[in-house]
Amino acid sequence: MVETEKMGSDDLEDSRILDLFFERSEQAIVELTDKYGRSAKRTAANILNSESDTEECMNDTNLAMWNSIPPEKPDNLKAFYMKVARNQAVSKYRSNTARKRNSLYDTALDELEDCLAAKDDPSADVEAKELSEAINAFLKRLSKEDRQMFVCRYWLADSTEDIAAKLHCRSGRISVRLFRIREKLKTYLIKEGLI
């Protein structure tokens, strides 16, 4: 077993955690979850709204990380871990046959669904890839803070309270800003002919 080094703060540097993965030391998962597990679990919980599903999702996430590193050597370990956790959570969310629509992820999707309501013409429904490209083009035009708000809400499914805590402001401000961003997105997508 490799001895862990504590560099400055209690958390191990990402490069050391990656080394542990490459050395096939199980300590890698311990250190990874110590450092980023709270954020990943919160995102999974936002999407799944079930303690048991969240635990199962985190186990699947850690296994997916173990199986993918190596050969993957992510430049941004946190982003990679969060992406895997979120993907696992969303997959589980979609496959749940008896899902109750009361998770934060549902609330977030509701907000966007209301905002992006299309014409009543099924043939006019846009492809996800096309919508994704348009959303990225739209996000490029926003300020960094507005982009962060959007992604925290609609990709991480953060509550407005959590977003406010992250940005050190009041949740009322977040709700108002998100409303405005959604309105701008709707206007943009109308202009692009997507809705």
Partner: peptide, 13 residues
């Protein structure tokens, strides 16, 4: 626009 489409589009951020 379906929730499924929106959900998949968000994956592509």
């Amino acid at each position: 626009m379906s929730r499924e489409t929106i959900s998949k589009a968000l994956d592509g951020i």
